[in-house]
Amino acid sequence: MSSSAPINRIDQLFAARSGGDPALVCFLTAGDPGLDSTVPAMHSLVRGGASMLELGMPFSDPMADGPVIQAASERALARGADMAYVLRCVTEFRQEDQQTPVVLMGYLNPIERFGFERFCQEASTAGVDALLIVDLPPEECGCVTDHSAKLNMKQIFLVAPTTSAARLDAIAGAAGGFIYYVSLKGITGAANLDTTDVARRVAAIRERSELPVAVGFGVKTRADVLALAGVADAVVVGSALVQSMHDAGPDAATAVAERFARELTGQAGGNPEAAELSDVRSNAAEGAPS
């Protein structure tokens, strides 16, 4: 690795943690509920206790996402949230926050069109720590990792309840940063969490990989987070947050995001004024019900 490669913020985050609640990873779709609300919402999530951010790169055909994130992607694209916009969000976020890891999550085609090498370089320059490309399995990932690895950007991979031991080894071999265990079959935003099963699966992952394990799909409440204490190193919340921010509308989304993160990290009393404000604005600003 060249001496200019930055230290990876994800590695730093997990190295600095020892036990306690799982770290909170918050997903938001870039450009939703407004082009100007994304960067403020990222900062407010961090203020509310989020340890890492996943920024969704909108795609026209998000085949692994449920209705909430699909709709958010469609809205963001309609507002003009292209790849250059997504990268600008990270650049702008980094002007004030050099510590919180940022993962870009999305699908391969917009990256291929942007250019694999150019995308990795510009993402790294913007301050991205890892990529999670939903439709890019380890068998096919060289087109991206050939460029991203040199820049010390990690490649995050999903592990599913249906993933075999052999595939788990292949994934562990290609993965960096953390392993993202999707706790449910199905798309994002579905059903509820079965923590006993999750604990068993996470233990199986730890037998095959030294990497921290994050659990996502089905995490919605503080109770879900607590149930994963001692099981997962991190929990990822996505659809529930995206829906709340959409319901709040662009003006109130920032306050709602902060309150959301506070609730999940158990600091709910933190900023009641912001929470009340968001309720008022949510009622006023909401257009069509989702």
């Binding site: 085949m63 692994a64 391969l108 939903v134 439709d135 890019l136 399995p137 068998e139 096919e140 991979f157 999903l158 592990v159 599913a160 249906t162 993933t163 075999s164 595939r167 994934i171 999707v182 079959k185 199905g186």
Partner: peptide
């Protein structure tokens, strides 16, 4: 060609 899908579909 190939298999560019989410891990959730790989086993199937």
């Amino acid at each position: 060609g190939g298999s560019f899908v989410a891990e959730t579909l790989m086993a199937a």
